[in-house]
Each structure stands twice: as structure tokens, then as C-alpha cells.
Write a protein that binds this DNA or RNA. Structure first.
Lengths: 360, 360
DNA sequence: CTGAAAGCGCTAACAT
DNA sequence: ATGTTAGCGCTTTCAG
């Protein structure tokens, strides 16, 4: 018929032919068809399908309906259901970078698990920071009548709430806003910084250096603050000379080696694991051993790095999974929102880069 | 009234009070309301909203409708639209591990971008390999009338097609099945292995070791096959003694050092980057330098590792992003499905772990 | 060029 | 204990 030949004989082929790649979609069975097959009304089928407790259906009828459902391979149409109820079982997740960082995926993962637990499905959109994409994504979610939207960023930072987001119930994840009533969950950087430092303190170190990041961020301030708190709790005076700064990656850590060694510290807490990885190289180059010559802790618990350096790196985990999960809980009102962002605990992870020593 | 006091005054507060955390959801404006506001019928509004080309609407009317839409803040209800059309603008992505591997997220990312490009949104479900969860996830997607489902695994492997998946249009991503007509996209391991080896060949190496994985997988076979092909093309006889096996992580690579050095190779191609990372440590311990004493290439292009080792590691990238994107294209019929899985190119990435040498 | 009306598949009163 | 019926918000003939 048409000018396209190759498609023709495929569809013309008999029902028995398992043609290589043709997906054969079929009949969407409806409630009514099930009702007819079972010889009951649609209302009855609906009651059976939804297992309504208060509805009394004769066991015999129920069975007949169930059989019909199975026989026809009925699937409820969630769209129709949603149309009636007005709100879907979707939670939207708008992320500015699924790609950018290896653990950004954990936010999705946590959100997905938690959402699922409460009967919700996750609708995701990656905006790569493009604000036009962002508006479109939010619009789409609004049109699908999502229960709410999680707006997440790949690194902890302050953000503006995009206007259309306000039309939905939303929670900021891994970011926060100065805006009135914007609920948010973020990692507890201060506690994390304290925990990192305390790992070192617990092993008897007193002269602990901190290589902070050069670039401004809530993490930079929070982790330093945590470091100071830990020292304070331990009765050790803060020595500004022990705080250095470096670009927060392997190269930065490597380059910080010389400066660190000048300061005569016995232990160092690095802003992140990547920095620690670079520092490992630097120390090794000097013939120094970890943890004997220098105990090291990182931050982030970036699995591929931290767990597999030689020796494995003690660090503090960024709770991305928990951020996603907590975001969902807050959205659904399971976790109450407090004043200001909820701070999620960053659990310390001890590994061999810090060793037991005689306590001071 | 109730025993709970704290919730009471919030809801009782006047409309003007910006209470800290109360999300105030409001009016779902409908098509009809817009129609009434604009003094036209719902049909007209529908035509305007959907920019139907063939419908002639007086410019004046169109404007009136648009104004009403803006004034009321109208959002189309995608559920209702879907109900009418029968199929949604969703593509489902079922993954067995968003969490497990740092780059699994890239599949999501690629799928999301490509889906979006064609007007589809991604609905994701993480099953963590749990087959009950998997069934539920697929059911849910079916109920939401997804356009199709991408079924993906976090490492390249053979898989069984879960029964309910067959009810949908589906494509396997990063996995494949022996089943008739199951479309699939997988990485081209053979080409990847060849490219990895060719990087070394191009730099004049003739005696190239390959540390393969101990655990069976398509990657294990394919990468070896690629290695052999590359040698063959270069006219170098295959020497089985140069092929070793180790557990594919840092520890495995480290432990393989001694065996490697015994073999007198000038270059080594590791099954993956993690292994290469361990090997770096082993070589360094022997006081050997990369690439002068030993040129190294890895596989996977695991960013946090490969780009930041000292020296940066040459490797071959696993095209996860492309896998996701290609999966979507195949699902939508944009890329035709061939016989057998589509193989996606694994691009080589050259870094300093291989250096220019005099050609043989 | 625009309005009226019939559903899409389902749920939820309200009848029986 | 089950059937009837009226929509949910939208698209789409079919009339005017």
C-alpha cells in the first residue's frame, strides 16, 4: 500500500510469527469488561480491586471477579484513578545534576526507596542547572498533579526557589533558601566536621591540621566550625596556623603536602576525600607513612576512593541517601519541619588511615 | 478541640500570616473555568492550549483565551489528557541498582535527557535486584500507561525478561536476553578492549600484559577478545602467559603487581580502573614509575579515579550515558533495532599513564 | 470560526 | 450485597 515496504509484511504476518523486533501491544482491558465477564457491575469490580474493607462482597462474587481479572489480564488505569482523586501518587524530583557527581545518584535512590515505601513513584528531571529546563520540568510535574516536588542540588548550597515550584508542595534537598517557609534538608556539616576531628582526637592526636577548601560553600564554613568545636571540647586551643586551604581535589591535596609538613602536625583532616587522595601521593613521595607519620581523615566517604586507598581512608559520610529519604518524609508530613533546614547526621567511618596510639 | 494543640493555631491563623512551614495548596483551575472566564467553550480553549494548527480561531478570541489562562494560572491536567489519549508521556526506567555503582546514575541521566528531548518524562524505580519489587514497579508503570519501559542493570550481563515486562514495549539496557525479539543495548566490550590495547600499541609497546577479571561476565570475555584482536591487527602473536587474572578491584590490582613484573611486559591493560588504581600502588611500592617503567591503561573511565591518579590514567569509557539515551531512542523507534543487541561504542580516553615512545 | 455533547476508565454516593 | 449513576478534566467529532 504505502511506499514503505519493509513495515508492511510485518504487520501482515500471521499472529504466530515471532518477528524479531516487533513489539505487539494489545487490548487495554477495562473495568467494565471485567464486570461484564464476571456478570457484575463496575462498582463491584472496583471494590474488589481496591480491597475495600468496609464493602461486603459475597465471597463467591469476589472470587468470580478475581477470576475474570486474571483471565483478562486486567490492569487498573492509574490515570483514570488519579483523575477522580485529583492527586497522583507521584513525587517529583528535580535535580541540577544527576551526572555531575558520583553520589548524586544516592539522593535519587533514597528518595525513590522512601517514596515507594509510602506508595509513591518518583518522577525525575535532570535540569543540569538550566533554568528553562527547570521551569519546564516543574510545569510537567505540576501537570501530572504530583503530590509534591523535591528540589535538589548536587552540592550543598543556598539556592533560589524557582517561581513555579511554589505552586506545589515542595522540599529543598541538599540546598536551602532564605525564603519564608521553604522546607529544606541539608547535611549537618558542623557535626560532620566535628566527627572527623574527633576521630583524630580519639586516637590521641593533639596537633591536628585542617586543610579546608578554597571555594566558599556552606561545607567550608560548617566543617571548619565543627573542627573548632571538636578542639574546644577537647580543651585544645585553636591554632589558626594549622588551618590551610587548597583546591578541593586530588591536585589540591597533593600540592598542600609541603605546607602541611611544615606545620608539624601529627594528623590532618582534609576537606574531602579527593583532597586526601592527593595528599596520600604527596606524603608517599616524601617517604612518609600513613598513619604512622601522619594520620589522615577525609570527608564525603566517596566509596571508590575512601574504601580503597592504601591504607583505607577514615572519613565522614555525606548522607545523600538519607537526604533523599528525609526529603520525602518531610514532604509527606511524616517528619515535621522545624524552623530552618533539617540537618542530617553525617556518620563517621573509621578506616586504617588513623591508628590507635597511646592517649595523651 | 482535639488533644493536639500545636497544630490548631496554625490553621486558624488568618490568610495573611506567612506561617513558617505551612504549604498552602490551592485551586486547581480547570479548562472549563478558563472557558467561562474567556466567554468561550471548552473546546475552543482546548484548541488554543494545544496550538492546533488546523483549527481556525479568531486572533481576538485566541488572545482572550490566553489572557484568561494567564490570569487564572491555568495548568492543563495531564492525567485527564492521558485518559483520553490512552497513553502517557512517560517512559519507565527499572534499574537493579541506582546505588550500587557510581556511574549507574549515568544511565538515568542519558535516558532522562533523551526522553525529555522527545517530550517524555522518566519514571524511575530502583529494585535493588529484588524481584518482587521489580514486579511491583513494572505493574505500577503499566498502570500509569507508560509509553514503554527501559530495563537496566548496573553491570553488563545476561538477564531474564520478567514476565510483566512483556506487557509493555521494552528495551533492555546494559543487559541482554536470549529471548526472541527482546531489544537491547549494551556496551561494545570487544571494541573497548581493542581500543584499550591499541592505546598501548600506538605508543610502541609490543609486550602488553592484560590483567583480566576473575569473575565471569560478558565484559571479561569481550575485553579479552578485543585485546587479542588488537594484537592480531598489529601482527603480534598472542601470548597466553601475558594474560593474568585478578579480582577486579583495587586490592586485586595491587596483588597482581608481582605476577605482572615477572612477565617482563612494558605495558599493561587492566580490566578496570579500580584494578589499575591498586596496581599503581603496587608499582610505586616497587619504586617503579608510570609510564616509564610500565605504561598502564584501565577500563571504565571512572572519573574520580582515572582522571585523578598520579599520573592520570588512560582508559576506555563505559558509555553509560549513551546506553540510556540509545535505549530511549530504540524504544521510541528512532533507532532501528537490529538483530541482537545494539553495541555502543566505548571511547578511549588517553591520559598520562601512557607516554610517547619510539615506535618499534 | 465556535459550541454542544459524547466519552476516556474509574470512584463514590445513593439506590435497591 | 450489589447495581445505577454522576462526574473527574479533557479531547474530539459533529453541528451550526
Amino acid at each position: 500500500m504505502s511506499s514503505k515496504e519493509n513495515a508492511a509484511d510485518q504487520s501482515a504476518a500471521g499472529p504466530g510469527s515471532p518477528s524479531p523486533k516487533a513489539p505487539e501491544r494489545a487490548h487495554p482491558v477495562t473495568l467494565r469488561e471485567v464486570a461484564e465477564a464476571a456478570g457484575v457491575s463496575t462498582a463491584t469490580v472496583s471494590l474488589v480491586v481496591n480491597k475495600k474493607k468496609d464493602a461486603r462482597i459475597a465471597e463467591e462474587t469476589r472470587q468470580r471477579v478475581k477470576d475474570a481479572i486474571r483471565a483478562l489480564g486486567y490492569r487498573p488505569n492509574a490515570m483514570a484513578k488519579t483523575l477522580v482523586s485529583g492527586t497522583s501518587k507521584f513525587i517529583g524530583l528535580v535535580a541540577d545534576g544527576v551526572a555531575t557527581t558520583p553520589f548524586a545518584g544516592q539522593i535519587i535512590h533514597g528518595a525513590q526507596d522512601e517514596a515507594w515505601k509510602h506508595g509513591y513513584a518518583l518522577l525525575i528531571a535532570n535540569t543540569e542547572g538550566n533554568s528553562e529546563l527547570e521551569r519546564d520540568a516543574i510545569s510537567m510535574m505540576l501537570e501530572y498533579k504530583v503530590r509534591g516536588i523535591l528540589y535538589s542540588t548536587w552540592f550543598h548550597r543556598q539556592t533560589d526557589v524557582p517561581a513555579p515550584l511554589r505552586e506545589a508542595d515542595f522540599v529543598l534537598v541538599n540546598c536551602f533558601s532564605s525564603e519564608q517557609g521553604a522546607r529544606a534538608v541539608v547535611p549537618d556539616e558542623v557535626q560532620g566536621g566535628r566527627s572527623a576531628t574527633e576521630i583524630l582526637l580519639a586516637h590521641g592526636h593533639r596537633r591536628i591540621a585542617f586543610i579546608n577548601a578554597t571555594i566558599p560553600a556552606p561545607a567550608k564554613d560548617g566543617r571548619l566550625q565543627g573542627y573548632r568545636k571538636a578542639l574546644e571540647n577537647a580543651g585544645i586551643p585553636f591554632d589558626p596556623d594549622l588551618v590551610m586551604e587548597a583546591y578541593p581535589d586530588q591536585e589540591g591535596g597533593y600540592l598542600a603536602t609541603a605546607g602541611l609538613l611544615k606545620r608539624g602536625a601529627s594528623a590532618v583532616y582534609c576537606y574531602n576525600d579527593r583532597m586526601a587522595m592527593g595528599l596520600y601521593d604527596g606524603l608517599r613521595e616524601q617517604g612518609l607513612s600513613i598513619p604512622d607519620d601522619m594520620a589522615v581523615v577525609g570527608f564525603d566517604n566517596q566509596e571508590v576512593i575512601a574504601a580503597h586507598l592504601r591504607p583505607p581512608l577514615s572519613t565522614v559520610a555525606l548522607p545523600h541517601y538519607e537526604l533523599g529519604a528525609a526529603g520525602v518524609r518531610m514532604l509527606l508530613g511524616i517528619d515535621a519541619a522545624a524552623e530552618g533546614p533539617a540537618r542530617i547526621h553525617c556518620p563517621p567511618v573509621e578506616r586504617a588511615s588513623v591508628q590507635v596510639r597511646a592517649h595523651a
